[in-house]
Amino acid sequence: MTTRAGRGGGFSYRRVLAYALMIVFAIFFLLPVYLLVITGLKSFQNVDVGQMWQWPTSLNFGSFGAAWIDLRDSFHNSFELTIPATIVSCILGSMNGYVLSKWRFRGSDTLFTAILFGMFIPYQSVLIPLVVFLRNIHLYGSIPGLILTNVVYGIPIVTLIFRNYYATVPSDLVEAGKVDGAGFFGIYRYVILPLSAPGFVVTAIWQFTSIWNEFLFALVITNAPEVRPVTVALQNIAGSQFTEWNVQMAGALLVAVPTLLVYIFLGRYFLRGMLAGSLKG
């Protein structure tokens, strides 16, 4: 197979230039990660900000230990928030996607567009009523309140992912199901759900990552330190005068670990969710 870069001039200088550019960009993308890692590994004697770029003289996980003490409880909170919210999101997404792709009705496309709009709004435009509402139903300042919020505002994206996914399931299968005497629920249960695994994987990864990384709702809805998820806790550590900067960096790395693991091992599905967000997936 001829490679595209090799064609044209037939020269390899183009290829060398391409590699050089790609390496420069890779450095740009990895430099902050490098800094993050070496700082996290430095001991407390070794963390003068002026020597930021120096290799740690000896491996020391003390920064991670210190950051872990600050973040441990909020890690627990984040998992308690993210896992149920992700599961409920997936179920709703699958249901909505099934209806809006295989059981369209008059106005269903308009309805879908109206749902999608919810994905783009600045959440500032719903925060005040949201806080009042959550106070009234006694969920303000609690993790269940945050789960509810993340599930509801996640509906547009999960619906979009599943609708796009089910659009690739041939409608003939649905028709065949009807002919065989299966109804709406039967087709969902016996035709659609068994084919849904990739849709669930993409949605679960997307929702897990977004809810784990979410900040604004968490900041506004969880006022007490005991219920804070990791993003708010990290922001507090970073804003504190009393936390050494190596601990801040180690904390940032710890917060990033779960989503990084997901990305490294399931990157393909992560990418699919991301492209779905641009509507052209």
């Binding site: 790609m22 960009f25 890779a26 993308f29 990895l30 902050p32 990660v33 800094l35 993050l36 700082t39 900000v49 930021m52 990552t209 784990w212 990384n213 979410e214 900040f215 993003t231 990290l234 922001q235 970073a238 900067w245 801040q248 960096m249 904390g251 940032a252 917060v255 990033a256 989503t259 990084l260 997901v262 990305y263 490294i264 990157g267 992560f270 990418l271 991301m274």
Partner: peptide, 22 residues
Amino acid sequence: FRTVYLLPMALSFIVTGVIWQW
């Protein structure tokens, strides 16, 4: 290279903010 370029997308803006602030 693709994995490297997409890596930051997996991070929270808060994590990004903390790193770049330093």
